[in-house]
Nucleic acid binder design. Sequence first.
DNA 1: TATAATGTTCTCGT
DNA 2: AACGAGAACATTAT
Length: 265
Amino acid sequence: MPELPEIEAFRRQFDTSAIGRRVDSVDVADEPVLAGRSARELRQATAGDAFCKVLRHGKLLFARTNGGTWVVFRFGMTGRIAMLEPDGDPPDHTRIMFGFNDGGRMAFDDQRKFGSVELAADVEIYLERNDIGPDALGVCEHRFRRIIGCTRGQVKPALMDQSKLSGIGNVYSDEILYQAGIRPDAKGQALDDGQLERLHGQMRMVLETAINRIATGKDLPDDWLTPHRGKDGKCPDCGEPLERKRISGRTAWFCPRSQHHGQAG
DNA sequence: TATAATGTTCTCGT
DNA sequence: AACGAGAACATTAT
């Protein structure tokens, strides 16, 4: 379930477990995962070098090797990183396996194959070339108001548009809108400054709380939408059955009573 | 068996 | 031209 908070968990895992370790081997089980690069290129860029730095931007993870190359992890719908002991079993859908000089291994596992592992010489250039917007947690309220408030379309797809804001996906966009009391089909332009300010604040609250919950191994709060999101789900605040609506090709879940701001359809 | 699932990208229409 | 909506992509679980 990788959106910004989950990728942040991967970053911390990478930071504590992979940084400083030298890559000795790289096995690519599924060549398309490299998005046009060859296994030889990935091996050339990483083998013999240690990972020395890792950072997250939105849903992307950038890991730098001593050699200066950045390895870019895109997790798609089901991607994840798994650290293995020397005798540990690889996950079922391992696409790439990095072997460290100490015998440990790191797997890039991705059941649905929407993820990829790419190479980049420079993070900023990569972001620009791929039209990736600012990290959702790095956007100030003023800029956020401009980004969302100037959108002609619906607010939910705007929150999920990675060129506008980087890091929010289908599940967390529903949660953020629920916390802000705004309908997912409200038009961005229809929101006033007060609503945009609240949306920005709740976006930060949701993402930061989720990061902390994941880091401490706790579930998301039971009074959030997410634990109830799905068939027969009820609003944890008012008990109203949650409504589902197809928006921009995805399923939005919301409470029609608690989320009354913005009228559209 | 049909449907839906946490993402990105391409195509088409406005 | 710029923007927004929907389909397609691969695979599995319900």
